[in-house]
Amino acid sequence: MMILFYIAGTVAVVSTVGVIVQSNIVHALIYLILSLLAVAVVFFSLGAPFVAVLEAIIYAGAIMVLFLFVIMMLNMGQHTIDQEKTWMAAKDWALPAGLAAILLAQLLYVLRDFQVDIVPNEVGVLEVSALLFGPYVLAVELASILLLAGLVSAYHLAKK
């Protein structure tokens, strides 16, 4: 399990780097799917199989397909790849990368004396469902309303 965690974590980091540096949008999307799947494996290795499955189905499956459709609708050809390359000059990277590095350094600094080991006991569907339809039932209802709102507004926005 531990090995799985580190391998999947490495894959996730590498493929995410691929997402942000790729100039071909379809390649970037595939890197993103890879990253999401790797995170799903991380979830599994942490003993959360239910969210791992949901990550794979909804994130890597449904949402990414949505992206794919949009990219197809926008019909980005070779010229957009060239354009992406011209947009990714080194000076555009410096400041954001620096900021993100500082942020990461701060996180690491905060985590420096966090020395708790996780024993990945499996927390399965049963427990999650008991919580979802127990104390969190109101949040579930709210989430459904959010989804409904997203549905309506997406329909409205995408209309001609």
Binding site: M1, M2, F5, Y6, G9, V42, S45, L46, L107, L108, L111, F114, Q115, V116, D117, I118, V119, P120
Partner: peptide, 9 residues
């Protein structure tokens, strides 16, 4: 076991 800080990192 997996150290928690690694997951957070």
């Amino acid at each position: 076991s997996i150290p928690i800080e690694h997951g957070l990192i």
